[in-house]
Design a protein around this nucleic acid. Structure first.
Lengths: 296, 296
DNA sequence: CCTTCTACATCTAATTTTTCGATAGATAAT
DNA sequence: ATTATCTATCGAAAAATTAGATGTAGAAGG
């Protein structure tokens, strides 16, 4: 039973004529005869009685009419639904590192939600490896990495930006004001860093390894807001992107250390999979993030 | 959009795999790919995201799933409906002459209704010409004629029976006991007959005309029950089938006239159109009438 | 009563659609 | 590294749909 036949059937029933239905639907009359016969054969019952030149719906035919109408109505309804502008609705799954997640939510989310109230977003966090896997399995719609500069033909970098990073310490620390430090000068200080294997932490470790150095931090924690406030209140030092430390640098609680021989490139990248279907809401979200998140 | 594609779509979505759906449905994998593509092209939107080996329903796909389920459910429901034994339901339109109608209703209807309470019947009356026209236009499902013996390749005679007919008079009339009358002996008596042009009345008139005779009845009326009771109470005579007069013959109120030279063949025939769709209820009704109505 | 018109069924042939099988490209699994 | 697996795609084969011609038969109109 195919929709084509049901449509023909409905028209024949309504017009009370094979010939008229054929003309209306742009079929030849024999085609209409065939289609109805096809239905009758499949259902194993007569749909129309043909007596002389009069066709009359049988009991079964009358029953089918009702079903056929319902079925066609559903089809139409769906197609109508499709036409509706779905610009600003839908669900987006965004995955970012912990620090970015916090920043995006506090700095921009409310504004975004106000502008596009129908786009629902799920934010989760993960490290770079997990995030890329999620893209590969279509479990994330878009991710943001803070890591080395990533290139891969399977991913589209919607936007990227190098992130300046600094070693930071409390303003009252003994490093305040010192110029031209070397990494070796601070390598034995008590460090508090983000978790091992994640994002810029991994880049950092790798860079140290190149110099045959290693740091065993006294504390590892993902939440960068906690790291910064700890550093500000202690003799601990850390290595963080400026956007994380900016508030406390401004308020004078933290200071940058002038370490010259450790220039690490950390990139912030907004990435989605090259096969990703760009719904209008995803497009909107990505454009928003490109504009707002990368402006500072 | 054809049902075939929707079924495939549902299976792909449920199994999360084109290949598995193909195996399940007995298609080749390329066919499934093609069918889904066909849907996507027609609807102008992506239904599945294909990222690596993972297919995921898009927003639109998820919407379609719901519609597709509803549509397929309707189809199934209808087919289930068909399977149900519709033996004893449906509507039948029966057309008979006045006299038969009365007899069938009083003698058999209640019994039939008790046996097949779900078959609804509409009885209407008409003369032979009207009845045959109704068959031709599928306005009557089955008719019963009391007329000359009808043959026509378009009609199926479900059952037929010759009806004995007699001239009748009141038992106390002067014809009682007379033997070997001729039609000419009674032609001038006051006749009460059924209406002109109907069934056996027409046959009767034609037969008289052959002999260059004519009767102008003093009363014409369709209702044979009225004719018989009038005859029984008066000097009127009539010409009627035995099944009509039987009760009053038995009770001795009427007597047959022994007219030898007027042997009219009147047939009772149960007829339907050769193209008539035999629903089970119609079959049942016809079988019942053949058994009961023609038994006496 | 005869002719013409209309309606549906059926047959054949043409066309279109569907399907398959093979292959490619790419990831996942071992 | 090699083998499985998965989907897309292409060309050919198969199947289904469609149209056109013809047949039959009743309806309509003169």
């Amino acid at each position: 039973m195919e929709l084509r036949n049901l449509v023909t059937f409905i028209n024949v029933a309504e017009l009370g004529s094979f010939t008229k239905a054929a003309a209306l639907l742009g079929y030849s009359q024999s085609t209409v005869s065939f289609q109805i016969k096809q239905l009758e054969d499949e259902l194993g019952c007569l749909l129309f009685e043909r007596i002389n030149h009069t066709i009359t719906l049988t009991e079964r035919g009358r029953e089918l009419i009702s079903y056929a109408h319902q079925i066609c109505a559903l089809e139409e309804e769906f197609k109508e639904n499709l036409k509706e502008d779905k610009t600003y609705s839908g669900h987006i799954h965004v995955v970012t590192p912990d620090s970015v997640c916090e920043e995006m939510l506090t700095a921009h989310y409310l504004d975004f939600h106000r502008k596009y109230p129908d786009i629902s977003i799920r934010f989760t966090t993960g490290d770079s490896g997990v995030m890329l896997d999620m893209l590969d399995h279509n479990e994330a719609d878009v991710i943001m990495t803070l890591d080395h500069r990533l290139y891969n033909k399977d991913y589209i970098i919607a936007k990227e930006q190098q992130l300046p990073m600094h070693f930071v310490a409390a303003s009252e620390s003994r490093f305040e004001g010192l110029r031209s430090l070397s990494i070796k000068d601070i390598i034995n200080e008590p460090f508090v860093l983000t978790e091992c294997g994640q994002g810029y932490r991994r880049v950092f470790d790798r860079e140290l390894a190149k110099r045959s150095l290693e740091i065993t931090p006294v504390l590892e924690i993902g939440r960068t807001d906690i790291i910064t406030s700890l550093v500000a209140e202690s003799n601990l030092i850390s290595y963080l992107p400026d956007f994380v430390t900016k508030p406390l640098i401004k308020s004078g609680k933290l200071c940058y250390l002038d370490v010259c021989d450790m220039n690490i490139e950390i990139w912030k990248q907004l990435i989605y999979h090259k096969n990703k279907w760009m719904s209008k809401s995803l497009r909107t979200f990505i454009d928003y993030v490109k504009r707002e998140e990368f402006s500072d």
